[in-house]
């Protein structure tokens, strides 16, 4: 047994080191590239240039707003619908699941072909603000949000909770906001964090519908000054990592409470 354990840990170390190096090398290269100065010196000019580019700052703000509006829209659409279907319309469950998971089978590049004519109408009625991308992004995050919320709702005794609240005279709005939402809050936070990360990284739809978001601006900048683009890219990768790292602790806590409650 000792020999087995040792050869196993050697194999594990080798795999983690080799693949770890493969994944860290580009990140190290990005850090090196963005700190190059003239004539072999080090300089933070690329990083300083991020704040000096008003278009880039504007694009970052647009993406952050989109991240918020898209997460809110997808939660507002999904939570009441999914709760209601579990309580009253179980027959619709398969249809809703199918619709929510459909974006997985339709590549964004294909979806955008059909969205281009649709957005001519959207921009006609709602103006051409980049925030109209919210509608497209809520579709993109639908499968992720659905899975997270579905897991959350499965983990609670929804029927009993809702009936108890209704029996005590609560309205359906109260049930949703003050009974269901707090009980699935880890799922809601998870769904939101995933949505935020996904929207901040989205490029396909924004670029082909000609909206200036973070990734579109980064790609455009790269044609002129690779240093700034690489600096922003590194920044977004690290930010997304921080979000998902945070998420891993939230997921862990849910498991603990599930064990405690069971």
């Amino acid at each position: 047994m000792a020999a087995v354990t040792r050869s196993r840990s050697v194999a594990r170390t080798v795999i983690l080191l080799v693949l770890g190096a493969f994944f860290l090398l580009p990140l190290v290269a990005m850090a090196e590239f963005t700190t190059r100065g003239a004539g072999g010196t080090r300089s933070l000019a690329s990083w300083a240039a991020i704040a000096d580019d008003p278009d880039l700052v504007e694009a970052i703000l647009v993406s952050v707003q989109l991240a918020v509006t898209s997460s809110v829209l997808v939660l507002v659409l999904l939570v009441p619908t999914m709760t209601w279907i579990r309580l009253r319309l179980p027959g619709l469950r398969r249809l809703v699941e199918f619709l929510c998971l459909l974006p997985v089978a339709i590549p964004a590049i294909v979806l955008v072909v059909g969205m281009a004519p649709l957005y001519a109408w959207v921009n006609y009625f709602l103006g051409d603000s980049p925030l109209t991308l919210t509608f497209a992004y809520a579709v993109l995050v639908l499968p992720f949000a659905y899975r997270a919320i579905d897991a959350g709702l499965s983990a609670i005794d929804l029927k009993t909770l809702a009936e108890a609240a209704r029996g005590l005279g609560a309205s359906w709005g109260t049930v949703l906001l003050r009974v269901v939402a707090p009980n699935i809050r880890t799922a809601l936070i998870g769904a939101s964090l995933l949505s935020v990360a996904l929207v901040l990284g989205e490029f396909t739809i924004a670029s082909l519908l000609n909206f200036d978001t973070l990734q579109v601006r980064v790609n455009l900048l790269g044609k002129r000054d690779a240093g700034v683009s690489i600096a922003v890219s590194l920044l977004t990768l690290l930010f997304a990592f921080a979000l998902l790292f945070l998420l891993s602790f939230i997921g862990g806590r849910r498991r603990d409470t599930a064990v405690g409650g069971g």
Partner: peptide, 19 residues
Amino acid sequence: AGVLAQFGGVPLAFAFLAT
């Protein structure tokens, strides 16, 4: 893995340009 698999996109292209 979550970052690189699902949210990489454009940043990955620049990561390899830098490498």
